[in-house]
Amino acid sequence: MPSHARIGNQYLTVDVSSLGAEMQSLATSDGRSWLWNGDAAFWSGRSPVLFPIVGKAPEDMVAIDGETYPMGQHGFARRTEFALASADATTCRYELASSPTTRAVYPFDFLLAVEHALEGRALTVAAEVTNRDSRSLPFGLGFHPAFVWPLPGSAGRDHVITLDNQGEPGLVRLEGGLISPAKLASPFTAGRLVLDRSMFEQDAMIFPEGAGKGLSYGVDGGPAMHFRFENLPNLALWQKPGAPFICIEPWHGTAAQKDGSNELAKRPYSLSLPPGETRRFAFTVEIVG
């Protein structure tokens, strides 16, 4: 059975499961909950970490140096037990090292570490990928946190995504779970998007470029969550139709392209990490109001 670590300070309390190193709750000291509760009637996820792919692979198979391996959507890390490497009052770090089980589907020696750390009213979730192999490590890495919609005390009010860079990033959609080649107009106007549930009837909205390094999700004059992204150039927004949550997903890597290569290294925005090197990815969320 998964175990849990709890961290907290005078402002925030966070619970993290050993299964997938996945955050299970994010609450402020006044008792308000900000993270989706994982109701399986809609979606049992809460804040999965996506590795070694983001999104779907054609026929759930990836190719590595010409050999094919089974790989479910968003990779295997989110369904794998991590080991608690360290913990104190405000920080916990879980690690997943390669094993015979992982090497059967992803033939590399790696270490994936996921750390949750509190500082004031902000939580930082960071992932570090270390290549322990003798050859380059191809992978994608993403975060998939779901936050309550409506926000606490904000039922019936417009919820808005506001990009820090005031950009109008281009939109792509999924077709059979894969990235459609069609480039669509941005739904943002001067960095502002008023959320409407009809936007998600065609699955996720994906912005491969131009969303910038930070955004706010909130209600004008009401509660808000401000995000900063580190080494995460892609952004997706997703809601299961009718569900009371919104996923704000920063990624480095996307689903494979429709009619594109199934080589892991050739997926959009995939990384290739040299032997012995470590790469860090993180998002920070600060709760305001």
Results as ranks from 00 to 15, higher is better:
residue 72 G to N: 07
residue 72 G to K: 09
residue 24 Q to M: 15
residue 33 S to W: 02
residue 62 V to P: 08
residue 21 A to K: 00
residue 54 V to L: 12
residue 57 A to G: 01
residue 68 T to C: 04
residue 65 D to L: 09
residue 36 W to T: 06
residue 26 L to I: 07
residue 39 D to R: 02
residue 55 G to H: 06
residue 24 Q to A: 13
residue 46 R to T: 12
residue 31 G to D: 13
residue 29 S to E: 06
residue 62 V to Q: 11
residue 31 G to V: 10
residue 67 E to S: 11
residue 70 P to G: 04
residue 48 P to G: 10
residue 21 A to E: 05
residue 29 S to A: 15
residue 63 A to S: 15
residue 41 A to D: 15
residue 70 P to I: 12
residue 27 A to H: 03
residue 25 S to A: 14
residue 64 I to F: 02
residue 29 S to Y: 02
residue 43 W to N: 11
residue 32 R to N: 14
residue 51 F to Y: 13
residue 35 L to H: 08
residue 49 V to Q: 10
residue 62 V to L: 13
residue 65 D to R: 12
residue 50 L to D: 03
residue 58 P to H: 14
residue 27 A to P: 01
residue 53 I to H: 02
residue 39 D to Q: 05
residue 38 G to V: 04
residue 21 A to L: 06
residue 61 M to Y: 02
residue 53 I to W: 05
residue 49 V to Y: 00
residue 23 M to A: 15
residue 40 A to E: 09
residue 32 R to F: 01
residue 48 P to E: 10
residue 51 F to E: 05
residue 22 E to P: 07
residue 69 Y to T: 02
residue 33 S to M: 08
residue 70 P to F: 11
residue 43 W to H: 07
residue 25 S to V: 05
residue 72 G to T: 07
residue 72 G to C: 00
residue 52 P to W: 05
residue 21 A to W: 06
